[in-house]
Every structure is written in C-alpha cells, then in structure tokens.
Design a protein around this nucleic acid. Sequence first.
RNA 1: AGUCCCAUAGCUCAGCUGGUUAGAGUACUACACUGAUAAUGUAGGGGUCGGCGGUUCAAGUCCGCCUGGGACUACCA
Length: 1105
Amino acid sequence: MSESVYNKKFKEHKSVHPVDIEKEVLDFWKREKIFEKSISSREGAPAYVFYEGPPSANGMPGIHHVLSRTIKDIFCRYKTLKGFQVHRKGGWDTHGLPVELQVEKVLGITKKDIGTKISVEDYNTKCREEVMKFKDAWDDITQKMGYWVDLEHPYITFDNDYIETLWYLLKELYKKDFLYKGLKIQPYSPAAGTGLSSAELNLPGCYKMVKDTTAVAQFKLQSPFPKHLADIEGDVHILAWTTTPWTLPSNTALAMGKNIEYVLVKTINPYTHAPLNAVLAKVLMSNFFHPEQENKDFSTYQQDGKNIPYKVLASFKGAELAGLSYEQLLPFEANTKEHIEGDAFKIILGDFVTTEDGTGIVHIAPSFGADDMKVAAENGIGSLTMVDKEGKFIDGMGPYSGRFVKDYKDEPNYVSVDVDIVIQLKKENKAFKVEKYEHTYPHCWRTDKPVLYYPLDSWFIKVTAVKERMIELNKTINWKPASTGEGRFGMWLENLVDWNLSRSRFWGTPLPIWRTEDGEEEICIGSVAELRSEVLKSVAMGFMDAPLADDFDLHKPYVDQIILTSSKGTPMKRESDLIDVWFDSGAMPYAQIHYPFENKEQLHQVFPADFIAEGVDQTRGWFYTLHAISTMLFDSVAYKNVVSNGLVLDKNGNKMSKRLGNAADPFQTLGKYGADATRWYMISNSQPWDNLKFDLEGIEEVNRKLYGTLYNTYAFFSLYANIDQFSVVEEQIPLSERPEIDRWVISLLNTLVKNVDAFYADYEPTKATREIQTFVNDHLSNWYVRLCRRRFWKGEYSKDKIAAYQTLYQCLETVARLMAPVAPFYSDYLYKCLHTELDDAASVHLGLFPEVDFVAINEDLEKRMDIAQEISSMVLSLRKKQSIKVRQPLQRIMLPVVREGFVEQVEQVKELILNEVNVKEIEYVNDTSGIVKKRIKPNFKVLGKKLGGKMKMAADAIQQFSQVEIQQLENAGNKELYLDGERFEIALEEVEIFSDDIEGWLVTSNNGITVALDIHLSDSLLNEGLARELVNRIQNERKDAGFFVTDYIKIHVEENESIKDALIEFKQYICGETLAKDLYMVSSLPEAKEMDINEVMVRILIEKI
RNA sequence: AGUCCCAUAGCUCAGCUGGUUAGAGUACUACACUGAUAAUGUAGGGGUCGGCGGUUCAAGUCCGCCUGGGACUACCA
C-alpha cells in the first residue's frame, strides 16, 4: 500500500451517483443487519410503539406509498436515535372486495358464477394466491426506498391465528351486547341480488343523471281538523313531492318541519278541476302558483289546468299539524294498516325537512330511505315493504303486483310503474302536479341498474353506545393536522351510526355466529378451541361426521359446513355474512400478536400505539376502526399521535391515475434520482397533510442543491484533511479559543439541533428539513466554508487550522445525524466517511441524536454575523455598481453609527467583513458630523396602540420631519406633535430612525444599516490589485497544468513596465499565495503563455520544482 | 348536501399572536468569480396575496359569503 493512500483517512470520491451510494449502503445494511441491530441494541430501552397500516399486495405500490411510508419511517428512525426501541411489524391486508374483483377479472367470471362455474373453495384459493401477487414488488420498493419495517414476520389478515383474534374480539363485543342483528336501510341492487357498500356506490360513474317521473301527491287529512282549521269547507289535502312514485304505496307517514311556515290554500286541482284545499310550505307557493292569480275569481277558471286561481286561507307552523292522521293514498289488500307494525298515516316532524324544493312536506316510506326509517322509528311509525328483493311489487298490490319498479330485466316493452301510478293518482284526484325531473341517482356498478334503498338484515356493532367515550378519547389524541382530528374525524364521531359489519361476500373473515333456524338460540364463537368443542357436540348428535381437522381453515366454504348444536339439540347454522374488512385492520393491534391466545401479558407493550400515519382517506377508515375497537373493548385510545398525509398529485395538481397516464412510477423515480432525494423532496416541499404536487424537477433540485452542496463541502473537507492528516481523535480545541466564525457556526449548529429536535418531536418533518437545508446551504457552505477556505489550505498545521477542521467536521457529522431520519442512505454514507476510526459495522442509525450544547449558543454572536453578512452583501453590491472587481482592494468603508453598541458589534466581525469584500479599513461616522442624512419612520405597532384613529395623520407628519426635527427628537428623547390641533408627545422609542445617505459618498442602505464605500484607488492599491490578478492567473495555470495543491513551483515573468512595480512590491505575497519558491523577471519568454492582466498582456511561465 | 384541506412571483413554497418597500428557492437575463466547479457571488424584470364584503387607525394575516382544486362522508322528498 502506498503511503499516500494510507494517509487518506477520509474517503475522497470522484463524482458518485446517489443511486450507487444507496446501493452500497443497502448492501451494508443487509450485510451487517443494521435494521435488526437498531432494534436489538435498544433492548430494555423504553418502547416507542408504531403500527403499520397494512397495505394490500394485490396492487402495485404507487408513489403515494413512498410518501406515507417515508413519514412513518422518519419518526421510527428519529425515535430510535432518541434511544427508544421501535419495533415495526409489517402487515398485509388480504381480504375484501378489491381482491375478489381482481380474481374475477383474472378468471373472467362474475359473482354469479361462484358456486356454479367455480366452487367457493377454488375461488377462495385463488383469492389467497392473488392477494399476494405483488408482494415481491412491495418488498422491493420497501427496501429501495429505505423503509425499515419487519418484512420477515408480517401479520397477514387471512391467517387462521389472525382470524381467531378477530373472533375473540367479536365475542367480547357480543358479550357486552355490542353486537346485534337488525334491519337497516341499505343500498341494494335488485338486479345483482346483493347489498352494496357505500364504497361500491362511490365508484366512479355510479351516480348518473336520470330523468324520473315525479309527482306531488295529495294526502287527504282526516277529520276532525284542529281548531284553527275547523271552519274550512270541504277536505284538506297535504301536498308532498316524490321522485320515486313507486314508493307511494309503501307510504306510512308525512314529515313536516317544526318551525317551517305552512299555508292552507284554496285552489283547484289542475287535472280534475275539482276544488281543493291544499297545505304546503309558504315559501314554496311560487313553485305552484302565479302571484297574479291570487284571490282571482274562481268562476273565471277555464278548466284547462292553467292560470289556477288560489287564495290563502290560513297560515301556521308545521308543529301545529303534528300528530294528525290522513287517509292512505294508495290502499291495496296487501298494504292495509293491519300489515303495519306500529302507527301509520300520521303527520310527524323531521329535522331534515327543508324548503329547498318540493312542497316542504316529505313523503315517508321507511323501507326505502334511511332518513325515513330513522324518523319513523323515532315517532313509532311502522313500515310497509311493498317491493320484494327482486325489485318487483309483491302480490296483493292490484294492477302493480309482480311489476318491476325499474327495468331490471331489460324487458323490451317495459312500462314504467312510476308513470302508471301517477296516471292513477291523476285519475283519482290525488295528484297536484306531475313532471319529469332530472337528478343524479346511484347505479349498481356491476349491472348498471338503479340501486334501491332496501331494508336488509345485517349484523351491527353498537358503536353509538360508546359515542361519548370515543369523542372524549379522541380529544387526547395528537392529530397532525389538528383540524382533521377536530373536523373530519370529530364530526364523524358526532354523527356516528352503528357499524354495519355484514358483507355478503366470499373472501373475508366469517362472522362467528351460529343460529337455530327459528332464531331462538344463537352462539358466538370466540376461539378455535371453542369451535372445536362445539363441533364435538354436533358429532355426538350426528349433525357432523368428524371433529375439526387440526389444520382447519376458518374461511368459507369450510366454516359454512359446520353445524353446531343448540341447547335443545337442534341444529344451528352459521349466519352467512362475512365481516367488513375494516374490522380486520382495526383489530390489528391485537391480532398481530394473536392476542389473547399468545402474548397475553405483552399487550401493554404494543398497545396503544405512540404513532401511526396513513393517508387522510383513512380518517374514517383505519383511523376510525382502530379507535372504535379500542374504545369499546379496552376503553383506551389505539394511538396517541397520528399523522394523516395528503395526496400525491401530478405536477399540475391533478389526481394521478393509471388511466390518464400521469401516475409517477415509484421504481423509475427511485431508480433515477435515488430514495433520499425523493424522500427529502416529498418532505421538504410541502407539509405532509397538504397535497403534494409531485414534480420530478423538484427531486433533481434536491440532488443538486442539498446533496450536491453537502457533497462538495465534504469533498473540500476531505481533500485538505487528508493532506494535513487531520485526525478526529485529536484533542478538541476549546470553543473559547476558536475564532469568531467558528464559534458562530457552532452556535448556529446547536440552534439547529435544538430546533430540528423539537420539530421531529412535534411531528413537523417539513420544518425540520427546511431548517437543515438552510443551514447546509446558506450558513455552512455559502458563508462558513467560503470565508474559511484559506484557513484550510494556507500555512502550517496550526491551532487555527485544527480549529477549522474540528469545526467543519463537527458540522458535517452533526448534519449527518440530524438528517438521518429523512435521508437514511446519504446520512449513513457521510457518517461512515467521517468515522473511519470506527469499525465497519458502525452506522449513523445505531447512534444517538445529537445533544444540544446550550452554552455554545450565542445569540449576540449570531446577530452580529447577520450584520457582517448584511454589510458584506452591500459592499459587494456597491462594487458591482461601479464595476470594481473584488480582486481590486479598496481603502475603506464608512459606517454611520446610529445605534449604541453598533461599533462594538461590527468590530468583532470586522476582519471577516474586510476579507470578504477586500477592503483595508472600516471608519465609523458619528451623526454629529452632520454629513449623515437620516430618515424617520413611525413604529406602527407601538404608536398605533397609542394614537388609534390619528395614526395615519401622525405617520404622514412624522415621515415629513426635517433633518433638524429628527435631530431635536434624538437629542430631547421626545417631541411634540400637533394633530388636528391636539397635542401629542412622540417618544424616541416610538419611531425608527435610519441613516440614509452620506453626502458625497457611494452609499447604499438596507435593513437599517448604511454603508459608504471609498472608491479612490492609490497606486499601492492598484498594484495590489495587479498582484492579485497575477496570483489568480498563476493559480489557474497551476490547475491547468495538473499540479497537485501541495506542489511547489517557480515563476518566470516577462518584464513589463505596467506590472513591474506591482511585482516588486508584492513579490512575497505572490509567492506565498501560489506556493512559489521564487519569482524571476526575465527579459523575454517567447515560449510562455500570454495572459491578460487588467488589459495588459503579460507572458508568464511556471514550473514545478 | 355536509365536513375538512388548499389558493401569495412562470413554478415550488415561507410569511409568528393584524403594524407599512410582501420574502426565499427555482427558472429567465446580464455581469463577475474560478485551489469547493454537481459550484458560487451581484444585479434585474416578474405579485390588484383567488373574488366580493365586513371588523380595524391598520388585513396576505381576523370574520362572512362566493369561485376554483382536492379529499372524505352521505344521498334526501
């Protein structure tokens, strides 16, 4: 091994692609089992509990998964660095409709074919295969994106053990009386013969515009009328509008608004021309009557249905009619009152009644509307279900018996029942207005036929019983953002309805309830063992042939083959439903450890979670089901902190979709730009809960700006550190002995650590990344390194030099650890480059988060460096305006002193400023000199409070103060001011005074600081400028010639009058800067390169010694 | 229909409890720099802070309404 290589402690790399670095780091993690060690090394430390929301592996991972998993990863890694032990068990969501659909697509079958073309057994086997179809792709992306999660021992929702825990939980709910079977109005597709979930209803294209025949029906009020209607002549009719006339035979009530103003109107039926007394909402009268027809003579009516006269007879609130009875609108033998359980044909009050359309009175058919059912139940009103599950009228419905309410069978001559019913109403003087109406209506996504709302038997979880507790517990959860917890989730809890568990499907967790045929007896099974022992009873009874096999599969169709035995010895069959897959995922805290059959005592170690994170779309999904189950069964929250992230949109803000081809492929993205850049971009670009407009150019920018800068900074460091053989283990130079700029950057670094730590702890990763970025780019690279460059390559291995190395080293090393949660690859790479003294298995992820050294934080220091930067920037700007290049030294800058302490501040950073702007001295001008012009501005915040309405006037007056007046105010400390003749006293603290200009100087001012630049050039300054130009050319020449930065040279310069003085005066300087042993002036150098030194052509030759 | 989020420079975003030239990065243009070159510095143009109304001496910031984008829930005569 050659000596030079041996000396290179710090890896120097030539242009390494981020993706290559990540590959290297990934190999290292695998080889050294870093992930496993990051957990095992924290054995005995306090746990930080995280739940992985299980993805479904039957689809390819998308770019949005990279976002949500980055968020999860960040906080798990952060807490690990903070010393916690963070287990992360992976999981797979395997049940449910999407899986079934996929299988049907693959096999080319539909639901109808199950049981005929394919057995349930084969179908479910296929589901089991299909659901893990893309597991490899998921594992791949998980690794490539640097997401640390335990893929070796994931929980899988279709496992028997998992299902057994679900059964246990269900039985616990059952025992608490939280599980019940009930009739609920649910979306139902008669054409498909199945209930639909709301998710299915919300599939794209399900809501379609349809044109329906609608009717305003007349419901005849029964006498006796209430007192205020007592003297009405003839019948009174209530008008109610419906878009589904086929529900009218099932009407059992009318709903009015309690506080809605109604009127009784005397008018004429437009179809039969019979006189009519009608009740409707006052504000909706104009929908039915022309104002000019009010109080018109009824005898002039033309019997044509037009220009109907009317007269308002009475006005009253809906509450006054509540409880009145009316005659059934469409009586048949099957829908008489005897068929109704409960009251019927009454006027009731409902909150949901509005006067937006119709008549302000709602026709109630409890069987066909959820609202209807609810309000009916509240008022003791029974229901009529005159339509069967095929969507046709039942027998005993006169001419309508057997007719389909919508065209479910594609009958060639289908005649609308709605139309026929309306015709009947018209004929019978029961229709006030009939018209076509266009609105959206849900359709079954499979059959394209309209959905009905239909009463279906379902199993429910009585979450409403713990509603208050759920609301209470929710208040203890830290939501990010808070608005989702209070708003979307909070509102959802406020309007909670019981959880409909039933799903009539094939691939899912079976409901473990067996019932006798008459429903008299039922049993809820809570474990496999219990099932096993129940089966034995059935075997004894002869209902079953054999006990349960050891490897019995708890899925359909096998569970359905089990018949249990009631206490009376009658057979019990399983309720055929499967349960909502959301129960699967909501139960994962317990099911992932097979609680309570295993790990019973360990539950408190993994429950509740400290942290979960998923997309905001999970608010009423997983976030809800976790919360519901934990509240009901454990009276606890399931998670303490939750981050709900927004969507990933395309760069134009449109939703990504495969169909539109604007979906970003995560594999491509990671492959091209690397995981760290992608992760950093996603987190730093927008807050997690805002939608992310995903733009590849942004990722490129991260690579260029952040990693590029870090890379350069490290490369700079390693280049010189190796030359000087800098060592980490050297004794640290105390901060107090380091120069101002070192103390400054260390102060900033500690402030950074403090803030970043707080941001991570507060689940604010975006703020953390932005703060790190600012430090790396603006402070470390663009100021510290730029200003300190000379310290690294100039001179001996002095104390100052060591201080510089130690300072820069500490910054880089700390940054690596700060960014480790977000950029796990690059941070580890950098960390290892910096820690050559550690063994090969060291990793940033096994270390600890940096500690803040509060003593090192010095706000005054940070403040005066701000001033230094401000002054430097202004001087450079002035130079620019005069086209004086920075290489040309200038004599002095002048700073007006307007504030006490200003001089002291500047003095401490004087050298930095002078070096940066290449100026010899700073001169301070006191305002007493009279050459400084001042500007005054009121302090609005202070003065506004004092003056209130007079503020504007005062501002104008103050800004117009003359120089003399400003001086007076400064001297006296206050000054009187007359506004509108009123006297006010203005104190010095209530205004801000700036120096604005210095007469006769080149001046600029900003942020209250003014700088004047002396641009006079003496011969000596000019010569020094020339010398610097020479140095610059020689340095370039060195570089072009490929000399190493430590090589010594000799310089030959052809004699030239214009630069002769400069060469003589600054020979030492030139040689020192260019590592030249000597500089020779020669009369002729024909072979040398000609160089332009301030428009003078000079021949210079350099050679290595 | 309800609830929530978002709207500031061409693009991506800051802007704390209301306080007076509305900022940064990026892109563009010009100049400079070149022993960090995946750079860097300086200057420049570019904004009725989505619209309307209100509160206030003062509104990008607070309130109301509306428009547009997005999400979720529900679906109603």
